[in-house]
Write a protein that binds this DNA or RNA. Sequence first.
DNA 1: GTGAAAGCGCTAACAG
DNA 2: CTGTTAGCGCTTTCAC
Lengths: 337, 337
Amino acid sequence: MATMKDVARDAGVSIYTVSATLSGSANVSAELRARVNASVARLGYERNAMARDLKQGTSSLIGLIVSDVTNPFFTELVECIQAEAHQAGYSVLLGISDHDAAREAELLTLMRSHQAAGTILSPAGSEETYADGRLTRGRMRLVAVDNASAELGVDGFALDNRKAAELAVSHLLDLGHRRIGVVAGMRHQHVSRERLAGYAGVLRRAGIPPDPGLVVHGDFRLAEARACAEHLLGLSPRPSAIFVANNLMLIGVMRALAEAGVRVPADMSVCSIDDFPWAPAFQPALTVVRQPIAAMATAAFRRLVARLRGEAEGGPVQEIFAPELVVRESCAALAAG
Amino acid sequence: MATMKDVARDAGVSIYTVSATLSGSANVSAELRARVNASVARLGYERNAMARDLKQGTSSLIGLIVSDVTNPFFTELVECIQAEAHQAGYSVLLGISDHDAAREAELLTLMRSHQAAGTILSPAGSEETYADGRLTRGRMRLVAVDNASAELGVDGFALDNRKAAELAVSHLLDLGHRRIGVVAGMRHQHVSRERLAGYAGVLRRAGIPPDPGLVVHGDFRLAEARACAEHLLGLSPRPSAIFVANNLMLIGVMRALAEAGVRVPADMSVCSIDDFPWAPAFQPALTVVRQPIAAMATAAFRRLVARLRGEAEGGPVQEIFAPELVVRESCAALAAG
DNA sequence: GTGAAAGCGCTAACAG
DNA sequence: CTGTTAGCGCTTTCAC
């Protein structure tokens, strides 16, 4: 690889002139600038971002840590943040925690050691996990998305998860359902507790006595959700509707239902949180509560950049986003009797 | 951030001792090693990977450029490669080309400027795009996945795309279909031309005269595939089956079919390339040709690492992977008449 | 076994 | 307007 020194020698100028030219400094005469540019082209020179960042004490890298890229929610998040980052001149270092707080901690360290200016994290742990201050260590700025809460001590961007669950469950209630099963997420995650609380709250306010047998905990992944659905199907009396806490688990539930020969929505109404490209193509098209992913991603990224530039002052801020119920075909009115 | 100098001062040793301790060199007495480790812990010191890589002339970064993360094929590819990389001690710098060769070139430059040791690319362009040697510039090693071919001049890892199409179309033929529409990919991509060739070849060998009206070109994305499907539905006589060249377009086709009230497989058989987690949950469960994504990802990554270590000698090698037909429910025998 | 010092490729303050 | 030089944080020869 050609270095700046090589370019300087080739152009017959000093190394400063090369640097200044490349940085667009005005203090270079048109003639030298031309000579430098010619040499750069001839040698195929490309500036070493590592050396540059080392010297400047800054970095054009940002970290992005998600728990599971194969979850369409995170897939879209990655897509959006990558696009924002590219536009803002940042490159993204991707980490996948696989829902494991230890792995996440490792990734955080990795991001810091690579001098990422900041990182966007979808936390995999519980609030206690972060009590050791691992999120605010060093000078790397952090913002949390999705499973965020004020306890984390960093800027957070999340859905109004309680409201999202309420939207889904109210919809089911309006359709006449009374026995509503729920496939919840991991107990320790804030996001999942909020969704469960939303479910419970709506039932309580409707005067329906809580039935612990109706709530099953999955892990936000597909495989385990199948087992959860099977459990719910085995109940007697069987629930007439299921509320599922996220998209991946919805797939698991739909698979289990299909295998058991249970028709949706004739025999069972199903509603979940998270929209995704496939939802409207399903038969029946899936009724879901949509998260404004792009808005959340953009807000998180922009806040991070603002923090980096020192444009955003003050303590951490939590930004909450409104969910939206998308009624399609997977929920039907409870058949009489 | 604490630096090595800080640790040295704190431990009362030279900077060399710190470096040697951290690198696990044997030339440090147990006592000094202990003192260094204590200081590291006390100061919360983390080694600056950037400075280290700069000095060593190596890098623990690898680039990964895909055309579209929201495509489940690439999502899984990213997942697998990320896992492999993490295990091998590499971090991945993610780039999304959005099927744009110019953007891809930009990303390649970015990877090089960040001193990525190598990058794994799913090429977005045609063979001619790469004739300028952009893939072999500099010292960054490159391997291509998915849309690879020998013309690229780098190691390639791809499905036997022709065979994959043959599997799908033969299946349709076996079911009695004769008028088989195809939603193909972008004309300029090698992978898409191969799939189309496989389709055409099977029909030719079956003695079915080619009908250009039956082939529509999409762009491997969802939206345009809907229009393609609508076009196919408007044909008269209407085809009795559709072969779709990838997963995202399959979704588009299924949506269009659902909207038009066309029942699958009763009114229309549908078969595509690419399996994905949702395929078995659809009603009907989707018959597809599966790619061994994990195997391809692993092979590509390992080859890259082998090249980096100088363990793999010789010119570029193309590795071709076998497709597998997964029969589910979306293709049915052609109804008599 | 330990330390001093050079230098990776780059930027920027300081001289001229 | 241009060049010289110090130094970012680290590794590693070379001396002690």
